Simulated scan of single mutants.
Amino acid sequence: MASRLHHRPWRDPRLLIGVLLVLGSTILGARLVAAADDTVRYWALDRAVAPGDSVSADDLVAVRVRLSSKVSDNYLPADEEFAEPLDALQWGERGAAGSLVERSSLQPKSSLGRSQLPLSVATGASPADLARGDLVDVWVGPGPGDESDDEAVRILQAVRIVETGDESASIGGSLAQTVLVDVADTQLQGSVVGTVASGHVTLVRVS
């Protein structure tokens, strides 16, 4: 009697390879879904903001991101209550559109005593394209033609431009513009006011 051959499909290499491919695809898909579930909605900036600007709902947009546990506490989840109403908050630092909102960048208006200091800035003593929101260092020293060995000194660091005025004739006859800068009251000492009023002011934009 001829021996009868038995076909055993589970030993077919093609079947085994197919099963492994399906299994691998299933595992990969499960991992991708699990990774997507790890994302959390955080607040990001929908537009650029400058220090001292009031916080508005129009500034914010919710985005889904995945952050490590080491840095996640630094940012503000979209489902978390703000410490105060938005109209009682202001931005404490410059932020670019699309960047995540750090907790430290939101500051209560009531906690910050601030003033606007006017500076008379001669033509050529500031960037030509100086604009509201720019951060500048304020240097004061002898003006052009002054006979003095004194060196210019930086009296204010990284203060925000509130407004730039039109050019007008200064006391010395040269063109100058009045520039308003936002300063904390702790920075605004009597010596600062006297120095900017009597010296040649130069504004250096900082990043």
Rank of each mutant, 00 (worst) to 15 (best):
M1W: 03
S3C: 13
L5H: 00
P9E: 11
D12G: 04
R14P: 05
L16D: 01
I17C: 04
L20N: 09
L21W: 00
S25W: 05
L28H: 15
L28Q: 13
G29S: 03
L32W: 12
A34H: 02
A35M: 02
A36P: 07
D37T: 01
V40A: 11
Y42C: 00
W43K: 11
P51I: 08
S54D: 14
L60R: 00
A62K: 10
K70W: 01
V71M: 09
S72F: 08
N74C: 11
L76W: 07
P77D: 05
D79Y: 10
D79S: 12
E81A: 14
F82N: 08
A88V: 03
A88C: 14
L89H: 14
Q90S: 09
W91L: 04
E93C: 07
R94I: 14
S99Q: 13
R103E: 09
S105W: 10
S105T: 01
L106V: 03
K109C: 05
S111D: 14
L112M: 09
L119G: 12
S120F: 12
S120N: 14
A122C: 09
A125S: 15
D129P: 02
A131I: 04
A131G: 07
R132Y: 06
D134N: 10
D134Q: 11
V136D: 08
V136Q: 01
W139Q: 12
V140C: 12
V140A: 14
G141R: 02
G141N: 07
P142H: 08
G143M: 06
P144F: 05
P144N: 06
P144R: 12
D146P: 02
S148D: 08
D149P: 02
E151W: 05
E151A: 11
R154S: 00
I155L: 11
L156I: 03
Q157F: 00
V159K: 10
V159A: 15
R160D: 03
I161L: 02
I161W: 00
V162H: 10
T164S: 10
D166S: 15
D166E: 11
E167F: 11
S168P: 00
I171F: 07
G173F: 05
L175S: 07
A176H: 08
A176G: 11
Q177S: 15
Q177R: 15
T178L: 13
V183P: 08
Q187I: 08
L188K: 00
V192E: 13
G194R: 09
A197S: 15
A197G: 12
S198E: 15
S198K: 13
G199E: 04
H200K: 05
H200S: 15
V201W: 01
L203T: 10
V204P: 10
